[in-house]
Design a protein around this nucleic acid. Structure first.
Length: 270
DNA sequence: ACAGTAACCTGTTTGC
DNA sequence: TGCAAACAGGTTACTG
């Protein structure tokens, strides 16, 4: 479900209610996520004040003065704020209690993760190899152009590689490539600097607009306030195979790249 | 080092 | 209607 805009939308939705609040309990109903949910969460967090809720790529970082909870939503994870008395439903795997308020983690496919680290989260094995944030000044044309040389993979695979740049999942990779006019399957080392520059800008623009619209709701993603994300109406190619391109009218095609559905306009994208 | 693929798991949609 | 296959927003770990 969640790419960077959905994770950021979630963070913005829940942070005001939780930052500077004290954890009163942790309940793990199903520890079998991507990796086992560690036993220590209750001991580490109960009675401790959450200082800040940050995001790195698609990871949410719950910062305490003695360590951090690292949380990833995987493909189908979501977080909601509920009254602590709300009955749990199927797939509600973890509750983090803040008095009368419950932060509830739901994840039908269980590809998500909750981990604890006492070091700085940036130095954690899973985070330290991550590339720059796409909306940061670090993510530039020169940077992406440099990494695109001497490699033979498709440009879509390149921008979906979290070691290159974080947060660009399947939806926003497709949309960014459409905006930049580049075919997803094109070898990344056969694209000019100018066109890599267009793509760099397109990634930033697509993600910014998506965050401002509260992310993309395809089936069941919801913002913390219960509203859907509104970026779905802005999608130009994702899940639109057979529909006419909004720029030229040619039918949108679907192919598979790196085991992922890929959508593009064969006329507008070269 | 690089590129491609299988795997993790459950629910929903599609096709016969 | 039933059943099986295909597919789904992510990422690691393995293979060659």
């Amino acid at each position: 479900m969640p790419e960077l805009p959905e994770v950021e939308t979630t963070r913005r939705g829940i942070a005001p209610a939780l930052e500077q609040k004290t954890v009163t309990g942790v309940l793990v109903r199903q520890p079998g996520l991507r990796w086992p949910v560690p036993d220590c969460l209750q001991n580490e967090m109960k009675g401790k004040k959450l200082l800040r809720l940050e995001r790195r790529g698609k990871y949410l970082l719950f910062g305490f003065d003695h360590g951090s909870l690292i949380l990833h939503l995987g493909m189908s994870g979501s977080l909601r704020l509920l009254a602590a008395t709300t009955p749990a439903e199927k797939h509600d795997h973890v509750d983090i209690l803040f008095g009368e308020t419950c932060l509830r983690y739901r994840d039908p496919r269980r590809f998500g993760a909750l981990l604890w680290t006492t070091d700085s989260p940036e130095s954690h094995k899973l985070l330290k190899q991550l590339g720059p944030e796409p909306l940061s000044a670090e993510f530039t044309t020169d940077y992406l152009y440099g990494l695109s040389r001497n490699r033979r993979i498709s440009i879509k695979s390149l921008i979906m590689d979290s070691k290159v740049v974080v947060g660009v999942g399947n939806i926003y990779a497709n949309e960014s490539l459409f905006m930049a006019g580049i075919r997803p399957a094109r070898r990344c080392d056969r694209i000019s600097r100018e066109r890599i520059g267009r793509l760099t800008g397109a990634i930033k623009q697509v993600l910014e607009v998506a965050i401002n619209q509260g992310g993309t709701t395809l089936q069941d993603f919801h913002q913390a306030d219960g509203n859907p994300g509104y970026f779905a109406q802005s999608l130009r190619v994702y899940d639109r195979q057979g529909e006419p391109c909004q720029q030229c009218g040619a039918p949108i095609l679907r192919v598979v790249i790196g085991q992922r559905s890929t959508f593009f306009c064969p006329h507008c994208q070269r």
